[in-house]
């Protein structure tokens, strides 16, 4: 569903993503972890097609993001860490607009919005201007708008930013349910608990390289550290990425 083939992205002299090779299957919940400036957000931006890779290929639902961008984006949903929303619109107007951009029929937009708004407790806010909403409510609006067209691939950068525990639970549940129904979820996060609880597989990036990849047990084996994911993460990211990459299996 999401395939990164020898992906490289350079910003001048800095190599933000360095030869990443990864395949995330249909219906898989994948979490990308890594310290600050590891290259996670750049990888996500490359998947969303916001920038061109220096070399390598990104495929979403079988479509090359650079060569067949519209086909790929039709199947993709992307929620950045600080999503853009039209401030003077109401959440309902924004949802309808997003649905229309995805060429959804009005009846389908209404049905999907009704279901998701109820699930994310957005009903009291649907007719209020977005500019007056709290950070968490705006995040929920962004997530609902991304889920509206029933994407095949859902890419989200820091999904829990600004969400209270109740709504964080809702997001986790909805994403897990959707992944069980076949939606591929690609999450970048610093919250190890999210990855530990939700992810089928976890990738750890460090200095632009994917230094570890696999299930929690795979990662424990690779790091040699037993116990919680935090210990595994700290053990892996403390290593030199050049050395650690040898341990990472090719996906």
């Amino acid at each position: 569903m999401v395939e990164l083939i020898d992906l490289v992205k350079r910003f001048g002299e800095l190599t933000a993503v360095n030869g990443v090779q990864l395949a995330v299957r249909r219906g898989e919940f994948f979490a990308l972890l890594g310290p600050n400036a590891a290259g996670k957000t750049t990888t996500i931006k490359l998947i969303a097609g916001l920038m061109k890779p220096t070399s390598g290929t990104v495929c979403v639902a079988g479509f090359d993001v650079q060569k067949q961008p519209l086909e790929a984006r039709q199947r993709l949903a992307y929620v950045p860490d600080f999503p853009f929303l039209y401030e003077k619109l109401t959440p309902w107007e924004f949802l309808r607009f997003t649905g229309q951009l995805f060429q959804m029929a009005e009846s389908r937009i209404q049905a999907a919005a009704r279901e998701l708004a109820a699930r994310f407790n957005l009903e009291p806010y649907l007719s209020k201007p977005i500019e007056g909403l709290s950070h968490g409510t705006r995040q929920r609006v962004a997530i609902v708008s991304a889920l509206l067209h029933d994407p095949e691939v859902f890419v989200i950068d820091e999904p829990m930013v600004g969400l209270d525990p109740q709504h964080a639970r809702v997001v986790k549940d909805v994403l897990k349910e959707r992944s069980l129904l076949g939606m591929t979820v690609f999450v970048s996060t610093h919250q190890l608990s999210v990855a530990e609880e939700m992810a089928d597989r976890i990738g750890i990036m460090h200095q632009g390289r994917l230094i570890a990849l696999g299930t929690r047990d795979d990662l424990r084996r690779q790091s040699g550290a037993a116990g919680a994911l935090e210990k595994v993460f700290l053990a892996l990211t403390a290593q030199d990425p050049e050395g650690a990459v040898e341990k990472a299996p090719r996906a």
């Binding site: 969303a48 916001l50 961008p69 519209l70 984006r73 853009f84 060429q103």
Partner: peptide
């Protein structure tokens, strides 16, 4: 512009 980045990830042609 943030709207440009937002639109670039949607099925809207460049």
């Amino acid at each position: 512009n943030r709207e440009t980045s937002y639109l670039l990830a949607l099925p809207v042609s460049t």
